[in-house]
């Protein structure tokens, strides 16, 4: 199972380090990172393997969301299925 973590906000030093530290803490293994632009904002997309997640998905998602709030970023963590459902027939 994979989670899609999106980080939206102003680009700043250490974003990848901050988010990946949190992922490591929860046992999520980042397999891919890309960067893009969404509505003039910096958007980083991380794909993480969550088979070895140490907490439940909601707790992991909340932890990332809280991390975002503390760093002025918008961090979302969503199960990959929603993207597959919407964009693949």
């Amino acid at each position: 199972m994979k989670a899609v973590i999106t980080v939206i906000g102003k680009d700043q030093v250490g974003i990848i380090a901050t988010v990946s530290t949190k992922c490591a803490e929860y046992g999520a293994n980042i397999t891919e990172i890309t960067q893009s632009v969404l509505d003039q904002y910096f958007a980083m997309i991380m794909i993480a393997d969550i088979d070895g997640l140490k907490a439940d998905f909601a707790a992991f998602s909340d932890a990332l969301s809280d991390l975002g709030k503390n760093t002025g970023l918008e961090i979302r963590c969503m199960h990959e299925d929603i993207f597959d459902a919407m964009h693949k027939i």
């Binding site: 899609v4 999106t6 893009s36 929603i82 993207f83 964009h87």
Partner: peptide, 9 residues
Amino acid sequence: INTQDILET
């Protein structure tokens, strides 16, 4: 999953 699809959602 395509980056653009992720951003669209």
